[in-house]
Write a protein that binds this DNA or RNA. Structure first.
Lengths: 134, 134
DNA sequence: AAATATTTGTCCGTATGTATC
DNA sequence: CGATACATACGGACAAATATT
């Protein structure tokens, strides 16, 4: 329940609640969450506030949102194993807009950057790849 | 210049412009960008639109925003080297809210997750650590 | 130290557009 | 085609944090 006088922003309270319910498995991967309008009515907040809450979950990589189709729990795919040799260095960061477009990386998904000999040897979306050290 | 009829959302156009100016080095790390009100006036868009644009840059890890203090270019710190043995696996994802609070991870910064023998051996903020394979 | 100005944060209502069912 | 659902954008109003005078 959202407390209007707790000092905690309403969109944050709503995000916290939805996150907890997601973790509890209330919605299976691929399942749809209630619409923004519905959440707005049920929680007694404006739709803008709902959108801010959902935006947080998106940035955390928990859900996918598509226009006209609703908000869905992100489905996990098997990770491709990328083997790297000794001496390689792995970093991570958020993708550039160009990378997101070219590699079709959804919101809230970082990239793994493999560096060897000071040179970038590969950039991999973290929702589809993991680095193994051989 | 923002084109009202290009079909590209205005907050995206503004984010693109600011990102380009950031890349060009117009503001040094730690320097302040113009205030939201100023950007709003200069570009002829509402403040809400400016905030959405800046929110994109935040999610990309490019800037830090603090209430009353403005928007600043994120400063890069030296990366701590975390050495992992052969057979280790490295993944990346966005941190949970708990991790963000406990480890003081800013917006737009993923975590590196090191797994060994199927068990999580470490979680490191990607703006302060890199994985080396020894 | 105190008052004032600036700057970001929150939230609402409203309107319109676009995508999907 | 209509109904539903998300996307964009504005304006207004305060609140809270910080900076300035």
């Amino acid at each position: 329940m959202i407390d209007l006088h707790s000092g905690v922003p309403r969109h944050r309270q709503l995000a916290d609640e939805l996150r907890a319910r997601l973790r509890a498995g209330e919605w299976a991967p691929g399942a749809r969450l209630p619409s923004e309008t519905r959440l707005s009515q049920e929680h007694g907040v404006g739709r803008g506030t709902v959108r801010r809450a959902v935006a947080m979950l998106r940035a955390e990589g928990l859900v996918d949102v598509a226009s006209g189709r609703g908000t869905r729990v992100r489905e996990l795919v098997d990770l491709e194993r990328v083997a790297v040799p000794r001496g390689a260095v792995t970093r991570s960061r958020m993708p550039t807009v160009e990378e997101r477009a070219e590699m079709d990386i959804p919101e809230g998904v970082p990239v793994l950057v493999v560096i060897l000999g000071g040179r970038v040897r590969g950039v991999y979306p973290a929702d589809r790849a993991e680095i193994t050290h051989s």
